[in-house]
Write a protein that binds this DNA or RNA. Structure first.
Lengths: 199, 199
DNA sequence: CTGCTAAACGAACATATGTTCGTTTATCGA
DNA sequence: TCGATAAACGAACATATGTTCGTTTAGCAG
């Protein structure tokens, strides 16, 4: 066979990325094979290489796109949130939850397939993750400095919050009992106030 | 070659389990190959099969042992904690964190390699996980019923707490800044009271 | 129209990987 | 002491998998 009528590079590349997200999320990167990916896209395994250089670079590109978008969106949201510490913190939490609900596959992959990356690629993604964590740590320290927050340790608190806010999205189903807005509200309150009744 | 002087089935089986825990944790189940596992144990790939039936059953056995221990220990701890809701909840949290610090590899594997299990095996592990989650949900509802806790939703709160308490252990280093006791204390407080200053 | 490039294909290669087989020898109960 | 069993080995098998190659044809700029 040869080139297919109506074929379009951009469209195929996007289809590959979408299918790869789904398959890596379902099976894991190592367990996903390129024949299966090609079949999901509807092309032959060889044709994948018209749109990517290696399996490894496919994974890296997916992660890089995700981390870039996450950082950019976060900065935009914080800029729009003004200067009041509590508002900024709530803006961060709200955006984090919504983003993680919306792009749960990217998030899952970026969190759990780091070990599948070459060391150099992994270092780059880890660096971006640290940048993201630093945003929250700064917010917490800001809040502690103004007396708004009471932290045992800003870094530990940040990690715990991120673990909670991220982990919960893993179980999210779009057709579930709760909508995104309710999930944001519940988790904002959990993070800020815990579960103990205020007296 | 043939049987090695001093060889002992129990010892080799234990060494396989330990090495498998390490390798699966480092690389993921699909990315761990049996030649590497055998080399880590110091035997030939073929010899692995004197101690396990398939690669799949090795994974399942590791997960089953972990979930069984987790459930048994939890029940023991709760039995010892008496009847006071807050004490029981703190006992659960304390045990959860300590167990997850101590056996972080098992925990990580049980959480993230479910998809590598055969459907029947996965169903069994998922059932045990639900049992575990039910313990916490019960504790939260107990606490809410007595007015101790103020929950938006017991199930969501339970998932969020577990995500936080489990996720944080992923980053734990035995040689780190904080000891287990401090980590327990910080996270108990985070879960119960959040980060907002009490007024 | 025409030719260059993009985008697809089938086929094959080299290697990796789970597993089995036949064999060998240490261990241990009778 | 002796035989059954346990526990190891090297070698091989069948298959899976990432990737490359040469070829073919659609799309599009000139």
């Amino acid at each position: 066979m040869a080139r297919i009528t109506g074929s379009n590079g951009e469209r195929t590349a996007a289809a590959i990325r979408q299918a790869a997200l789904r398959l890596i999320h379902e099976r894991g990167f190592a367990a996903m094979n390129l024949r299966e990916l090609a079949a999901a896209v509807g092309i032959s395994p060889a044709s994948l290489y018209n749109h990517m250089s290696t399996k490894q670079s496919l994974l890296f590109d997916l992660m890089l796109e995700h981390m870039t978008a996450l950082l950019e969106q976060t900065d935009a949201v914080l800029s729009a949130a003004g200067t009041e510490p509590l508002a900024r913190l709530e803006a961060f939490i709200g955006h984090h939850v919504l983003y993680h609900l919306e792009r749960k596959r990217e998030v899952y992959i970026a969190n759990f397939e780091l070990r599948a990356l070459d060391p150099a690629n992994a270092a780059r993604i880890i660096g971006m993750r640290h940048d993201y964590e630093a945003r929250l740590i700064d917010l917490l320290e800001e809040g502690a400095a103004t007396g708004l927050l009471s932290l045992g340790d800003a870094r530990i608190s940040a990690y715990a919050m991120l673990a909670m806010l991220t982990g919960v999205c893993t179980g999210y189903r779009p057709d579930g009992r709760l909508g995104p807005a309710e999930i944001v509200a519940l988790h904002t309150r959990l993070a800020l106030e815990g579960i103990l009744r205020r007296v």
